[in-house]
Every structure is written in structure tokens, then in C-alpha cells.
Amino acid sequence: MRDRIIEIIGTHGKNQGALIPVLKAVQRMNPRQYIPQEASQLVARIMGLRESEVYEVVSFYGEFSETPRAEHVIKICDSTVCRVNHHRELVDILEHTLGIRVGEASRDGKFFLEYSPCFGACDVAPALRIDDKVYGNLDRDKLEAILEAYRR
């Protein structure tokens, strides 16, 4: 992990302004899409920042997770527009199909389910994101087909 982090910081630089891009890359290199405490400590040491300065950024922003997630993170929009477009049904289908609740990872380590604030896909609500990709106008059939494609 140390070598990878040194490499990432080598690419982005040691200025504090590089902290968010560095943390994004650190999280991405982790197969479970999170930033372990040791990683934050290493980033702080190598960039010459205080541990608290790194930790408060990790804990402040929605994209960063301090706890292990999974290979793919499913983010269900929980904002007003998706709610009035019956996003509850999506949650039910996902929880049922994956056999987990929101905030949990599937047993095969493939999916992690979490709520997300609006990500600007209100024209195709109800919507969700799997990692960076947005899926909208979802119903049961579409959702199951999408999950199947990720399982393969």
C-alpha cells in the first residue's frame, strides 16, 4: 500500500490542494472502495500534513468512506425528486435481490448499497449510480438486468 500511495502522491504533488485528488486515487486503488485509517496516516505523513487535516477531509465528503464497501457501490438517490417518483420500490427490489439492507455489502463482496443525495438525474428519476455510471427510468426488469450485467 505504501508504494502505491507514494506513487499516487508523486503524480498529484504534495501541495494540500492535491489532497482530494490523492484521496480519490487512494480509495479507487482499494478493491473495497474505502480509505483505511492506515492509508490516511500514510497520506498525511508523505504529504507533510497533520493526520487530523487528512481525516477531516475523508470524513467531510460524501464520496469518501472510512469503512469497507465492495467492488461496486450502488448509490440510490434519496432526495425529493426520486422520492416523489417512488424510489422506495427500487430500494425494496435491491434489498430483496441482493439479500442485504442499505448500508451493507453483499456476501460475495460484489455490491455495497448506500443512499446518496441528488446526483442530478432527476429527469430520469428514480435513478441510481453504480460507481460513476448513472442509471435512470428504472423498473424491476431493468434493474435486474443491470445487476446481472455487473455479476457476470
Binding site: 501541495n15 494540500q16 490542494g17 489532497l19 482530494i20 487535516e53 477531516e56 477531509v57 465528503y61
Partner: peptide
């Protein structure tokens, strides 16, 4: 603030 690497 976030561009400077701090909480927003």
C-alpha cells in the same frame, strides 16, 4: 476551500 484540500 475544497480545492485547497480542506473540508468545504
Amino acid at each position: 476551500e475544497s480545492m485547497e484540500g480542506r473540508p468545504g
